[in-house]
Design a protein around this nucleic acid. Structure first.
Lengths: 95, 95
DNA sequence: TTTATTTGGTTTATATAATAAACTAATTTA
DNA sequence: TAAATTAGTTTATTATATAAACCAAATAAA
């Protein structure tokens, strides 16, 4: 009846990160921080978890002389997100 | 952009409990345990939290000589659930 | 030009939460 | 009457989310 909800995605901040990345080609750390309102520390930790799971790719480089972290969702990330949404429907759809 | 997800509902087991109770007039502890596959201990704790939040009502009585705990969702519970689902849509709907 | 502030993060510590294990109490069965 | 089952609760453990503290470089201010 109730499918398991992927615990990596069942997290407010990680879900928001994935949601953002689904809609864009790429997004950098600062943009995601602004959109989510998360603290940098929390964001750093959650990005790390998503990367380790293979759900996002993270590129650390520089824009001019300032560091810049760019994130991109992966195929595995898209698949996991879609599966999560399917599972979730079993909980939130009426009847 | 991203509304806060009510942390009381953003929990796999509590969400399943609420989902069950939304669809029925009432449900007892054993039924919920079977439907969710949760351990009795975990279920007991989570039912307590939902009750303390005023999202469900809990009646402890007896069926014959055996104890029986019956749960029912409240108006506040229905409202909170609906708000949670609305907020969630902001995360999972494409674009 | 040295000092403060800002930017872009990471690491570490803390509080909360989920969960299972252990336990209680009564009941039924062997 | 001893063992097992039912219906839970309490307690302990592990994991998680989060913020606070920190670091390094760049820029702005005195």
């Amino acid at each position: 009846m109730f499918k398991e909800l992927n615990p990596l995605l069942h997290s407010e901040l990680r879900l928001a990160i994935m949601s953002i990345l689904l809609g864009v080609d790429e997004a950098d750390f600062v943009f995601i921080r602004e959109q989510t309102g998360a603290t940098a520390g929390n964001l750093s930790v959650q990005i790390d978890k998503l990367q380790k799971a293979g759900y996002i790719e993270v590129q650390k480089g520089f824009r001019g002389k300032m560091p810049r972290t760019v994130c991109r969702i992966t195929r595995a990330g898209i698949d996991a997100f879609e599966e999560y949404v399917e599972a979730l429907k079993g909980y939130i759809q009426p009847k």
